[in-house]
Simulated scan of single mutants.
Amino acid sequence: MSTESWLADTRTSYDTVATSYADQVRDLLDETPYERSVLALFAELVQATDGGPVADVGCGPGRITAHLRSLGLDAFGIDLSPAMVETARREHPGLRFEVGSMTDLDLADASVAGLVAWYSLIHVPDDEVGPVFGHFRRVVRPGGLLLLGFHVGDESRLKTRGYGGHAMKVHVHRRQPAQVSAWLDDAGFTVEAQMTLSSAESPLGGIVFARRRTGSQ
């Protein structure tokens, strides 16, 4: 499947379900104390290195962006779906949300102190993950922090319906933390911590903290 094809399917799917998705996940962090702790640790680590802008890539309706702002970070959101961005702007007025793709981030080199991709890599095919991580490395400043959340497993499946029963056409990819860590290492990140957990976010979720290396790699 070409990049243009899966991106178009993903954009259309999330444009279709934007309102229903926002309703379903709006209060999810209230049910996930371990994830709240992960996000709080991320905020603490970014602030410990003098802070700076933080990009929430694949932000959806903006709930993680807004939570990071409540933790004191200068967070902004980027999402492929214009309807998701519109929803985020409506639900979190005053915060910055932009339409964009993690396959071609419209951000300056080394312009963010941290980057979060919270269950937003799940539709990216395996052969596209490396280039996406290359974009993450380009925009994160040397020594900057990356936080990933993803579904753990070994299979991919086509999702044709979800979030209010609306039609969708997206592949959901589940991956092992070791594979994600290997891709990050190849892209110039050093993995500092990884864990798995089960919660309302995912039956089995993977969490990885990684830091951009300061040299050429």
Rank of each mutant, 00 (worst) to 15 (best):
M1Q: 09
M1L: 10
S5K: 10
L7S: 10
R11D: 00
R11P: 00
T12G: 05
D15M: 04
A18Y: 08
A18M: 02
S20L: 07
A22D: 13
V25A: 10
R26I: 03
D27C: 05
L29S: 06
D30A: 12
E31S: 15
T32H: 06
P33Q: 11
Y34C: 02
A40R: 14
A40K: 14
F42H: 06
E44C: 05
D50Y: 01
G51W: 02
G52K: 01
P53H: 01
V54I: 11
V54C: 06
A55L: 14
A55E: 03
D56R: 07
G58L: 08
G58V: 13
G60S: 09
I64Q: 04
I64M: 00
T65P: 03
T65C: 12
A66Q: 13
L68M: 11
R69P: 00
R69Y: 00
R69V: 13
L71G: 03
G72I: 15
G72R: 12
L73I: 05
L73Y: 04
A75P: 13
F76H: 08
I78L: 14
L80H: 09
S81H: 13
M84I: 15
V85I: 04
E86W: 01
A88K: 10
R89Y: 00
P93E: 10
P93K: 08
G94F: 03
G100C: 03
S101M: 01
T103W: 01
D104Q: 09
D106E: 11
L107E: 03
A108R: 09
A110E: 14
V112Q: 04
G114I: 03
W118S: 12
S120T: 05
H123N: 12
H123W: 06
D126V: 13
D127E: 15
F133M: 15
G134P: 08
H135P: 00
R137Y: 05
R137L: 05
V139S: 07
V139Y: 00
V139H: 02
V140R: 00
V140D: 01
R141L: 10
P142G: 09
L146A: 11
L146E: 13
L148V: 03
G149N: 06
G149I: 11
H151D: 11
H151V: 02
G153R: 02
T160D: 07
T160A: 06
R161C: 06
G164L: 08
G164P: 13
H166F: 15
M168I: 08
V172I: 13
H173M: 07
H173W: 14
R174S: 14
R175S: 11
R175P: 02
Q176A: 14
Q176F: 07
P177E: 15
P177T: 15
Q179W: 15
V180P: 10
S181M: 12
A182K: 12
L184K: 03
A187F: 06
F189H: 04
F189L: 05
T190V: 02
T190A: 15
V191S: 06
E192M: 10
Q194P: 04
L197E: 09
S198E: 11
S198Q: 09
E201H: 13
S202A: 12
P203S: 03
G205R: 02
G206Q: 06
V208M: 08
A210G: 07
A210P: 00
R212E: 00
G215N: 09
Q217A: 10
Q217P: 07
